[in-house]
Amino acid sequence: MSTRALEITDLTYQYPNGTLALDKLSLAVEANERVAIIGANGAGKSTLLLHLTGVLRASSSSAFKVFGTELSKKTLREIRQRVGMVFQNPDDQLFCPSVHEDVAFGPRNLKLPESEVLKKVEESLAAVGLPDHGSRSAFQLSLGQKKRAAIATVLAMDCQMLALDEPTSALDPRGRREIMELLEQLGGTQLIITHDFALAQRLCSRAIILHNGRKVADGDPANLLNDEALLDAHDLL
């Protein structure tokens, strides 16, 4: 039996100000599966994603396994390398003076030799279609290019799973199409938070609907996203 990419049982998270963002959430993602996480604003999607790389830690006892490894202080490093997090706002992810430095940041943290780092940077920028943009600064890129550069920063870490927070939000139709094609072509395990129903139906084999920190539906995107009663009940229509 192959190990699951992600297995979460009874995940509860409460922000320090008392907001219960995740409420006994359980879900599983198989390896090489592309899953859409859908939910209204405030449903807890981003909070869930922040748990994936151990940036946030569950408030109560729960099981959290990434590729069969239990998330803990000891395994944090390993899990951060396995899960590539792409934040919603690329300005948060591209914090270096040049795109090249941003993409090199992860591999350097992994203590790879500089020649290896250079190779990874070139490969990753080529994979997202920005091979000649390394020397640019992020403010010289369009939003679509910034989002792709942000994806390159995690590709360079050779992760086994991509976790993306609203990768197509605020993009023009061309930028959106480019991201969709890129995700399709990258393959592998992907967890995509999105409000983009077309993306979910075209790319994902499964959709999970969150509402108030709970999972309310899990299944075929084509069925779920055409179920008006379901969508309406969870503020998605």
Binding site: F87, D92, E101, F105, G106, M157
Partner: peptide, 24 residues
């Protein structure tokens, strides 16, 4: 933003000790 940038750094394996610019 500062908090989010820090999260982004952490999730790419930064733990405050590495050199951002390879010294070798």
């Amino acid at each position: 933003r500062g908090e989010r940038v820090y999260l982004a750094m952490c999730s790419r394996g930064y733990d405050g000790t590495q050199s951002l610019w390879q010294n070798s």
